[in-house]
Simulated scan of single mutants.
Amino acid sequence: MSDRDGLKPLTELCTADIRNTWYVRIDRQTGEERPVTVEDHYAEIERYPLHDQVPDRIATQYDVARNLYLYAWFEYRFFNIAEAQVLTVLELAMRERIGEDEIKRYIKRRNDEHKAKTGKKGGLRNGMKTLMQYCRDHQLIRNEGFSAWHRNAKQIAYNKADTERRQWAIAELKRTGKSQIALPEVDIDTLPPDPDYDYVELLVDNLNQLRNHYSHGSTMLHNQVLDNFEMVSEFINQVFEDHALTKEKVR
């Protein structure tokens, strides 16, 4: 039996891919379940637009990725095509924002610094990781501009607070000789994000690997791609927001 999906039958063109019907939404208050709908699917991707400051040619390519995600409701394999597209658009946006002449100057300076320090020829290339390093070094992107940083940094802060309260409880049990003790509550909503968590550096070190994986051909199949739409939209919005402010100051 073939594992090929084949061409979708014309009569099923606007029918939801059966793999999208396996998921449900659960009401946290009542515990009731309901099937995920196309309206849910649309609302998920609608949340991640680009700002008006982003050039139309970038926004158009980004919306190609969003529409691929949208039509993944009917063809499940579009999820990963959408993710590949949105990562390609990120590189396109960085090149547009930085400019080829500027990135060449940046690469030359970095390679010259490397040679002066080590005596060896620098190997920095004009690729996605270098573009991200430029954005990091010139503060076109910041941790605070990413929702994932706020979520993850708070979770890390919670983990630290949880470890500290357990250590306190163990010490208190030893000091008092009690057999049990109530742990104090940790309110994650009142915890500030952990300043030591560097989400930007995580992106710089790892994101190009995923993009390269797609670029070299991939059979990866999953639907967990929304986080990268969130990240890319926030990344692009940050770099062009900075650009718009700079142009406004020049005026």
Rank of each mutant, 00 (worst) to 15 (best):
A157M: 09
Q209E: 14
P195F: 05
A161E: 13
V186M: 04
D198V: 04
I156K: 00
K249D: 06
G217A: 12
A169R: 01
T176D: 12
T163C: 04
A171D: 11
Y197G: 05
Y158C: 01
M231A: 02
L202Y: 01
V232Q: 02
P192K: 15
S215C: 15
A182Q: 12
L202M: 04
V250I: 14
R166G: 07
S179A: 13
L207G: 00
I236C: 05
A171H: 06
P184K: 06
F235S: 05
S215N: 15
Y214H: 13
A182N: 12
E234T: 06
A161S: 13
G217R: 12
N228W: 01
D194N: 11
D198Y: 02
N152I: 09
T246Y: 14
Q209L: 15
P184H: 07
E241I: 04
H213N: 14
H150A: 08
E234P: 02
N212I: 05
A169Y: 01
K249W: 07
I181C: 08
V239L: 09
N206F: 05
T163S: 10
S233G: 03
Q238T: 04
S233F: 02
H216A: 10
N159I: 09
D187F: 05
N237G: 08
T219K: 08
H243L: 15
L245W: 12
K160D: 04
H216C: 10
V225G: 01
Q224C: 03
N208P: 00
L183K: 04
S233Y: 01
Q155S: 11
K247Y: 08
P192S: 15
I236W: 03
D189I: 04
K178H: 12
Q155E: 12
V186S: 03
E164V: 07
A153I: 10
I156R: 00
V186L: 05
Q224I: 07
V250L: 14
K249L: 10
L226M: 09
H213P: 01
S218R: 07
Q238G: 03
A157R: 07
Q238V: 04
D205R: 13
N212V: 04
G177F: 11
L173P: 06
K160R: 14
E241K: 10
E185Y: 06
P184F: 06
Q167P: 00
A169Q: 01
N206I: 05
S233M: 01
D187V: 10
R151S: 15
D194Q: 03
R211I: 09
E248C: 00
D187R: 10
A161N: 10
P195D: 08
M220Y: 10
L203M: 14
Y214P: 05
F240Y: 15
I156V: 03
K249Y: 08
Y214D: 07
N159P: 03
A157P: 07
I236D: 02
L203Q: 11
Q167L: 08
N228A: 00
K174F: 10
H213S: 15
